[in-house]
């Protein structure tokens, strides 16, 4: 009996304050969405159900050993390189419950549109586009010595070269 009772409680807990973000869809760039050389299947198949704009750095679009994990509300694409992995993800799910709405409102106001920093040895970029939140991360085998993880140069460059390669309303 008790087990049965846990189900509605868990359902309530997991869905009570979560939702799906609205997207202000960007004007698609036909060249990026349908390039003359088609993107590898791993990418096109992996993101076919995604219902948010899918961004990746343009120079990574043809990397065949990329790993794509996605469903309709999020995607994570990892690009493995020697000694480091670059990952980009976007997510439409949100939570609305916080301890103090006023405080969180102020925090939201103060957050810059994009941040670049190293945390726990991982170089990160956080940004919001079209109402969706995205993260890009570089994790290095040698986090304290590898410039890709100690210097913001690469992540800034990758950020400046993001293109939308898929996703649909």
């Amino acid at each position: 009996m008790r087990r049965l009772l846990i189900l509605p409680l868990l359902f309530g807990i997991l869905s009570a304050d979560s939702g799906i973000l609205d997207i202000k869809w960007p004007k698609p760039n036909a060249k990026h969405l349908k390039p003359s050389t088609p993107y590898p299947k791993v990418l096109t198949e992996g993101i076919k159900d995604v219902r948010l704009p899918v961004y990746i750095p343009n120079s990574y679009a043809y990397i065949k050993n990329m790993v794509v994990i996605a469903d309709k509300n999020f995607y994570t694409i990892s690009f493995p390189f020697k000694g480091a992995t670059v990952t980009i993800s976007g997510d439409r799910t949100y939570q609305e419950s916080v301890s103090n709405k006023q405080e969180f409102k102020a925090i939201l106001k103060a957050i810059p549109p994009v941040t670049f920093q190293q945390e726990e040895g991982i170089m990160t970029a956080e940004f919001n586009r079209h109402g969706v939140n995205y993260s890009m991360e570089i994790e290095c085998d040698k986090p304290q010595r590898d410039k890709r993880c100690t210097d913001t140069k690469l992540i800034k460059e990758l950020y400046s070269r993001l293109i939308m390669v898929g996703g649909h309303p």
Binding site: G19, L21, D91, T93, Y94, Q95, E96, V98, K101, F104, K105, I107, L108, K109, I111, E120, E126, N128, G131, N133, S135
Partner: peptide, 18 residues
């Protein structure tokens, strides 16, 4: 074990991941 929780919070139509 370092353990952390990241989520998108949305208030008054604005959202961020924290």
């Amino acid at each position: 074990l370092h353990f952390d929780i990241k989520e998108t919070i949305k208030i008054n139509g604005k959202s961020t991941k924290v």
